[in-house]
């Protein structure tokens, strides 16, 4: 399948599962706000407002990571209940087209949160000219998370495990790494482990755009971008190798 057809089918699948859905079910856009904005609220209040910048960055990454890892549940539902994966396996749609489609669906549901939080980042000091790069960094986290969520979904055999896996993955990808808190507080021997997670680099990149360039061992924006790219490529390669498009 050509790149054009892959992108076209992914946009159609994304539209099918998001915009066409939301047109008749507007309330579903609201649910995603609840958890990340609660965390933002709590961190801001308990820090007396000092941690608002870091909490905002964390919330943006949490939203993107959650809609991605949430695919562990959503894609399981599409596969086991709707049989959507079966439908598209036996069709010209490629696995990559399907993955991008269901991932775009998640991105759409994250849009309202981004529409609120990205202007907040600009208000906090992000130069407008850097906004596309910020979006590139957070989208890398989104696609990485979606790929991991999708891979897991292809192994899950019941829906409840799918949703639960999604929750667990979102903790691993977005809560444990230094997204909501500064990486500087991590012990030096833990830091290399945190570097394995793209969320860490996206968080540090966002901070450096706001003028809070972190001073960490071995870390630079170039290293951060490289690690973001590498983790995404590795996730996609693992997906192509291990995800069960056709069941064994």
């Amino acid at each position: 399948m050509s790149v054009y057809h892959t992108l076209r089918s992914s946009v159609v699948i994304g539209y099918m599962l998001s915009i066409a859905w939301v047109r008749r079910n507007l309330l579903s856009l609201v649910w995603l706000f609840a958890t990340p904005f609660s965390i933002l609220f709590l961190i801001t209040v308990t820090s007396g407002g000092h941690a608002f910048v870091q909490a905002t960055i964390g919330t943006i990454l949490f939203v993107l990571a959650t809609v991605g890892t949430g695919l562990a549940g959503d894609a399981t539902w599409y596969r086991l209940e709707v049989k959507l994966q079966d439908l598209f396996v036996a069709s010209p749609v490629s696995q990559m087209g399907y993955l991008l489609g269901i991932a775009l669906n998640g991105l759409f549901f994250a849009t309202p949160a981004l529409v609120i939080l990205l202007p907040v980042l600009v208000y906090l000091g992000l130069p407008l000219i850097d906004l596309p790069l910020v979006m590139l960094a957070v989208c890398a986290v989104w696609l990485f998370s979606a790929t991991i969520g999708y891979i897991v979904s292809t192994y899950v055999t019941n829906l409840r495990n799918g949703w639960q896996s999604g929750l667990l993955l979102s903790v691993i990808v977005a809560v444990i790494p230094p997204a909501f808190y500064p990486a500087e507080i991590l012990p030096p021997n833990i830091l290399p482990i945190a570097y394995l997670m793209p969320t860490t680099h996206a968080s540090l990149i966002l901070r450096s755009f706001i003028g809070q360039t972190p001073e960490l061992a071995y870390w630079s924006p170039a290293f951060g971008w490289t690690m973001l790219g590498v983790s995404l490529v590795v996730a996609l390669l693992v997906m192509l190798r291990l995800a069960r498009w056709r069941q064994p």
Binding site: L17, A20, R24, E81, V82, K83, L84, D86, L87
Partner: peptide, 10 residues
């Protein structure tokens, strides 16, 4: 596919 479902509001 056997016993699949449709997508809610579509």
């Amino acid at each position: 596919p056997q016993e699949g479902n449709t997508i809610g509001p579509l």
